[in-house]
Design a protein around this nucleic acid. Structure first.
Lengths: 133, 133, 133, 133
DNA sequence: GTGGTCTAGACCACA
DNA sequence: GTGGTCTAGACCACT
């Protein structure tokens, strides 16, 4: 049993073509934007996240650095990295663009297996009705 | 309304950061997935598409090449490039299992960005109604 | 006897009529097939192999690329290219069926050239004993 | 029920990378060399072979042309194409080279599915013992 | 340092 | 006419 409930669960998709550091940034941004990560919350340490995601620590460093440059997080040397009070400006359009990119990648991947958009919608609808999520 | 019926209309966005050849692949895969490109249809010739998109012919070659390796298209030397059958030996049960696996992975990935199954279905449905892209 | 143990030694034959990039692919595949290259091993870097073979780096890139698309190797950007696992989800029964299908096709193909199963086995056995190529 | 028993059965492998016309030439050469095709025998007509192999008639024409240039066959306008009396010089080395090329392609293909040379030899040996050919 | 992308242009092979 | 291969060289991205 873990001591604390994780506020954010980052998943790296090696097949997406999106650079790892970019995937990390995007997911943290989105978590801030929709309230899963609130001001003052501590992010995982570079090392623990690197182990968790099985990526090079430098990759995490790069992601955190970019977030810091944008002012979304503060790094306190020797203590950790924390969500700053700067609000993330994420319009519905921005959100939709990210979703669009994800969906496009998925649809293409599915096409490689011979599935159509129709197949996907059908399966997803059934999937939802069965109460999974 | 265009005068002639286009089998596929590819657009390159130089600002997206996605490599040109990958944009071509994605759009062809999507066209296959939503039925705009059907089995046996001929793709534009390498040279004509290169002129059309204003990219180097080699860039188109590279895209077609990857599609060929993946088995999505067949190349007939000296003749052209065609959408292949690809609905290989696969039982419906196998198909469903593969689709299930793909969908589960995608839903989990989307969830880490804060998107729900509902968001995905909505986007896909809109996407279909708008006639792609 | 060479001083250092080579994981793989690739030789390009410019007179064979087989494209360079394909010769590279074939030899790497064969090295995987007979166990000289095992999972996780790093391939030579693009540049070093290009120098070694006296071909253009792009030619090596192309070979590695196709191997990557087929799932035989994994590329880690900025790090190198490695033999991937690839023993995907496949039961022994499935494996045997696929092998059977491959072998049947090959035997039939060989027969049309006048070669018998005996010829093939003999060649393969000799091939193994000579330590490949 | 066919009227005559075919002396030669040509098989085109679209995945081998060997040009179709080349595959036809090789297989006819081998058939002449090992006595399956004897002097005076008629080859299939261009059209019938093209239909049979599902290739462009021009491809067959090209193969027959090259065989004619080498003096292996005679074309009698309006009558057909016949094996000439020129012996095919095909040394064991030549034969082995052709076999080598075929086997290399097959081993590589098998590697893509994760099979080793050992797997192949084992399966082939069993295959032969079961009396199949 | 690694690999990735793209261009320009030459030359070859197949139908 | 189609696609295929290769080179040379520039510039970018990731570790």
């Amino acid at each position: 049993m873990d001591k604390k409930k994780e506020a954010i669960h980052i998943v790296i998709d090696p097949t997406s073509g999106i650079p790892y550091y970019r995937q990390i940034i995007l997911q943290i941004e989105m978590a801030i934007a929709d309230g899963r990560l609130t001001v003052g919350r501590q992010l995982p340490t570079v090392r623990s996240l690197a182990v968790d995601l099985q990526v090079n620590p430098n990759t995490v460093v790069r992601a955190y650095n970019e977030l810091e440059i944008r002012g979304l997080v503060n790094t306190q040397h020797g203590t950790g990295t924390f969500i700053s009070d700067k609000r993330v400006e994420m319009s519905d359009v921005d959100r939709e663009q990210i979703l669009a990119q994800l969906v496009r990648g998925f649809v293409s991947q599915s096409a490689s297996y011979g599935f159509t958009v129709h197949d996907i919608i059908k399966y997803l609808t059934d999937y939802r009705e069965e109460g999974a999520l």
